[in-house]
């Protein structure tokens, strides 16, 4: 009985020893396989380039100037609310629209003019809160371009358009239809 127990213990140790050797052996085989695969893949990747070619890419930036107004039409109306008893002058203002620009050229300014050669009433425009450049003094619009915004060179920005319509009681009633043109030009 005692010999049988010793025999069983021997068999157990023998099996455990061989099992451990088997695991170590499998690990070695797996490591070798992975190394071989890496070498093969590396060789394939390196050997995939069969030639090169090139072309020249030139980026050229030309003079670009873009301008726009936030709204195409403005209506100004002088009515009873804009008049004071005893005063001949009546005014109305509008600050609802903006002028936007972008230019990559230095030494630039913005001018303003109207197409209406003989208006009944006076129309003025002023740049309010420009993000770049300096507002010129309030412009009384005529068919001659006048400075509206100066020193804007190489910038993009916006400014509010403050229109002021002025009429005298002695001028009576009526309407003026202006096309106001804003132009970025050389300063």
């Amino acid at each position: 009985m005692l010999e049988s127990l010793h025999h069983l213990g021997y068999i157990h140790r023998l099996i455990s020893h061989h099992f451990c050797q088997l695991i170590v052996g499998l690990r070695k085989i797996l490591a070798i396989e992975l190394l071989t695969l890496a070498l093969v893949l590396g060789g394939v990747a390196k050997g995939q380039t069969y030639g090169t070619d090139f072309h020249r890419v030139t980026v050229q930036v030309s003079q670009v100037t873009v301008v726009l107004v936030s709204l195409g039409t403005v209506n100004l109306s002088i009515s009873g609310a804009n008049a004071v008893a005893g005063q001949n002058t009546m005014t109305v203002t509008d600050l609802s629209t903006s002028f936007l620009w972008g230019t990559n050229v230095s030494q630039r300014k913005v001018t303003a003019q109207t197409n209406l050669a003989a208006p009944l009433f006076t129309l003025k425009v002023l740049a309010v809160n420009p993000t770049q450049g300096s507002a010129a003094p309030e412009v009384t619009l005529s068919t001659t371009a006048q400075d509206f915004l100066i020193n804007i060179g190489k910038s993009s920005g916006t400014t509010q358009l403050l229109y002021t319509g002025v009429a005298l009681a002695s001028q009576g009633t009526g309407a003026d239809a202006h096309t106001v043109t804003f132009t970025v030009t050389v300063q």
Binding site: T73, V74, N75, L76, S77, V84, D176, T181
Partner: peptide, 17 residues
């Protein structure tokens, strides 16, 4: 283009104060 345009109509109604 480096110019833009805006149409503006200035109307003066009859008023009496």
């Amino acid at each position: 283009g480096s110019s833009t345009q805006q149409s503006l109509i200035l109307r003066v109604m009859e008023l009496n104060k």
